[in-house]
């Protein structure tokens, strides 16, 4: 895969962090991370266990506040924005460990994300299904993720693969322009894995995707660029070819992966 030279004009940059730091007590979990995601890019963030990938995604999505540094979404500073504001501004995420609404149905889970995105979150007098555009979009998203046949079942009773799909469906229902996928295939049994990979491959092209992943197969299959995080700091960033041949990356990451 070739990495076409892109201009660095702000309008081409979907998400950017500038000298991001995060300390926990004496521990620096995020150390001077400056990451740039270009519009429409399929970008992977890799790194060994404990490299600080989850901390970084929590900083990007507003679950945690950085100790210092800035986060820009399409050129606008969102460092201080609350988690839900970031979603409304077009930054959505999935979770490595399912964070679903166990007692609800997929219809309600996706329906909530859709009605929220369509600005109906505060509507308290009419039902969700009252609005035709909302229902249409719910059906469209459920259908795209093959969840229509289980839309009325309790989420906690769904097979794990379906739950992982719903994780992504709920994020997509927020109509993000930047999507953070935190290990989308983690824990999915072999038989259901292909469904997930399929969905990831078919994500809308205009959506910028940051894929946080452990599984190198998945990374090489989907990513155009890769950033490597080690001990909270960015070791390097580059194209798939550059990264897979980088001796430093081999040393800290691929080498480790070989050991199992």
């Amino acid at each position: 895969m070739s990495d076409a030279p892109l201009s660095d004009a702000p309008r081409d940059i979907a998400l950017q962090t500038v000298n991001l730091f995060r300390n926990f007590g004496g521990l620096t979990a995020t150390n001077d991370v400056s990451l740039t995601l270009r519009r429409g890019e399929r970008h992977a963030l890799i790194g060994p266990n404990g490299a600080g990938k989850t901390t970084l995604i929590n900083l990007l999505t507003g679950v945690l506040r950085p100790s210092s540094g800035r986060i820009l979404l399409e050129g606008e500073d969102i460092t201080e924005a609350r988690a839900d504001e970031r979603v409304r501004r077009g930054l959505a995420r999935t979770f490595q460990i399912n964070q679903l609404f166990a007692a609800m149905t997929p219809l309600e889970g996706v329906g909530m994300a859709v009605s929220q995105t369509k600005g109906k979150g505060w509507e308290f007098w009419r039902s969700v299904g009252h609005s035709r555009p909302v229902i249409d979009e719910i059906v469209e998203v459920l259908d795209r993720f093959g969840l229509c046949d289980v839309m009325g079942e309790k989420i906690s009773s769904l097979p794990y693969g379906k739950q992982r799909l719903l994780e992504i469906a709920m994020a997509i229902a927020c109509r993000p322009r930047v999507l953070l996928l935190d290990e989308p295939a983690a824990g999915v049994p072999e038989g259901e894995r292909e469904d997930i990979l399929d969905v990831v491959a078919k994500l809308p092209e205009d959506v910028t995707v940051l894929l946080i992943e452990h599984d190198m197969d998945l990374v090489f299959r989907f990513a155009s660029r890769i950033s490597v995080l080690v001990s909270g700091a960015l070791l390097t960033a580059g194209t798939v070819d550059e990264i897979s041949t980088d001796p430093r990356v081999r040393a800290v990451y691929l080498g480790e992966a070989d050991h199992g």
Partner: peptide, 8 residues
């Protein structure tokens, strides 16, 4: 998760 789908 509620916050992550944009619920304030």
């Amino acid at each position: 998760r509620a916050a992550a789908i944009g619920v304030p």
